[in-house]
């Protein structure tokens, strides 16, 4: 199975995590990463069947992270994973205050108005024939901190929000993949241990693999990445 994994700086942890995953789990899986930090992917657009960019720095980043490719041809893959890119799966804790229509629109807006939404639209444009591929939207990990929520509250919120995001994104032909429940320390926060010692995404510049600032709680480490990708591959296998 060929997987195209497109993401921003948060994809660094996943890429490192993949190296730690047992080979048996990766058997038959071929993942190509295309990653670039910040809002770089806003300079990517569809041209025929490919996603291209007119930005030389981004093009270099794509080439570096993918191992030599300067453009992305989504139709060459079985699954397109859009990871992070400003997409956060925030969901109201007091969801009962809102109608289902409002909640679904808020989920859809969160995705559509992010860089991930832009990329999704551009990817969709490249499907010129009927070869519609599976597109998976994966939200950015919640910041690492601790919150006073009970296990039951976290689980209830997780179930409700993942269901709502899944339903909302399905309306536009996209699947949703939530941050694994076991990585959460609160309804919208990641266990603090997962952000300790996180390293910067390597894109071929002088910042490659440098540690994130100690105050950075938004980027995760390779342990998180390993956990995430294992969870992802198992889900993929079960589907």
């Amino acid at each position: 199975m060929k997987i195209c994994f497109i993401g921003n700086s948060h994809a660094g942890a996943i890429r490192r995590g993949l190296e730690l995953v047992d080979d048996s789990l990766k058997d038959g899986i071929d993942i190509t990463f295309f990653a670039y930090g910040g809002r770089g992917f806003s300079r990517v657009y569809a041209e025929g069947e490919a996603l291209v960019t007119d930005n030389s720095s981004l093009r270099e980043g794509l080439r570096f992270t993918s191992g030599g490719l300067e453009s992305i041809v989504p139709s060459e893959y079985d699954i397109i994973v859009i990871y992070g890119l400003g997409f956060y799966s925030y969901f109201p804790f007091d969801a009962s205050r809102y109608s289902d229509a409002v909640l679904q629109n808020s989920c859809l807006d969160s995705f559509s108005n992010s860089l991930a939404g832009h990329l999704y639209r551009e990817v969709s444009k490249t499907f010129l024939t009927n070869s519609i591929k599976k597109i998976l939207a994966c939200s950015t990990p919640f910041p690492a901190k601790s919150e006073n929520h009970s296990k039951e509250e976290i689980e209830r919120h997780f179930d409700r929000s993942s269901e709502c995001y899944s339903n909302a994104l399905r309306r536009i032909g996209c699947d949703f993949f939530y941050q694994p429940l076991q990585t959460l320390s609160g309804v919208e926060c990641t266990k603090e241990s997962f952000s300790k010692g996180s390293l910067k995404l390597a894109t071929g510049d002088e910042n490659d693999d440098l540690p994130h600032d100690i105050s950075d709680k938004s980027h995760m480490n390779e342990v998180f990445g390993k956990y995430w990708i294992e969870h992802f591959l198992k889900k993929l296998g079960s589907n």
Partner: peptide
Amino acid sequence: REPAPKTLSDESKRRF
């Protein structure tokens, strides 16, 4: 006193 969910866009806020 009746705020929208924080990810609801301005356009959707108006609609709802």
